Amino acid sequence: MDGLQILPLAITMMVGPQIISAIIFVTTPRAVQVSLGFLAGITLATTAGVAIMMGLAAALNNVVDFGDPSDNGSVGHIIQYVLVALLAAAALKNWIKRESVEPPKWLGTLMNADPRKAFKVGLMVILVMPSDLVIMMTVGVNLIHSDASFVAALPFIGLTILVAALPLLIRMLFGHHAEGAMPKIRDWTNTHSWLVNIIVCVVFIILILA
């Protein structure tokens, strides 16, 4: 998987509490300021996260050779298959517990967030979310496996930021129409968080195997 092939992973990075947070922020009284704080946190967290994961992947590669990227049996590919198994287990767990799965309670506190808190949330939804850590590790492994530099990760980072900015861009482009729709989208994603989680896992599995 080269730099361009990992771009779709950026969409998966923001599906879940991440995009729900972005939608909540554009429904607050200080939507623009708060959303910009959130995007600053997303930018810093994604950039730092990918750099850290590339460093870990490089260190692992020094201990265990990842092998040829064209070899489906190489260590690099085996690591990805393990990640697929973990994601499949997570999707199954969400399906089994779909009746009791609820969105994180901290999402309910975001309506009163200021830009500083939004910045912290932007950091948190990237750096402490297991799904995003897995995605960034996958990106790191792929780049090291392909002997690519950090520069190859910049399109992935940029697209992640763009996806995070979509709710704000939609609000700014469509004005009052978007203001009326965003709360409905926010409420739906809150009540269907289990489905969102499953979609994240399935899409990510497809992207890795592709």
Rank of each mutant, 00 (worst) to 15 (best):
G73I: 07
M14F: 07
A31N: 09
F150T: 01
V32W: 10
M124Q: 14
A10T: 02
L209G: 10
K93I: 02
A89L: 15
T46F: 00
V64L: 15
A58M: 13
S149G: 13
M172T: 11
A31H: 14
G41C: 09
N61H: 14
N197K: 11
N112C: 00
A178W: 01
M13A: 10
S131W: 08
P155H: 09
M129Q: 13
A118G: 10
L127F: 14
I23Q: 03
D187Y: 02
M1E: 10
G73K: 08
T43A: 12
A153F: 00
D114V: 08
L86A: 14
V34G: 06
S35A: 13
V139Y: 02
T43W: 03
L154T: 12
S146Y: 07
K97C: 05
M53D: 05
E102M: 08
M124D: 01
A40H: 07
A85P: 05
G175E: 08
G180K: 15
L36Y: 04
K184N: 11
T160S: 11
A88M: 11
V63G: 12
L162K: 09
G3H: 05
L87H: 05
H176S: 15
D147H: 13
S100T: 15
I42S: 00
L60V: 11
D71F: 04
A59R: 10
T109Q: 13
V139D: 04
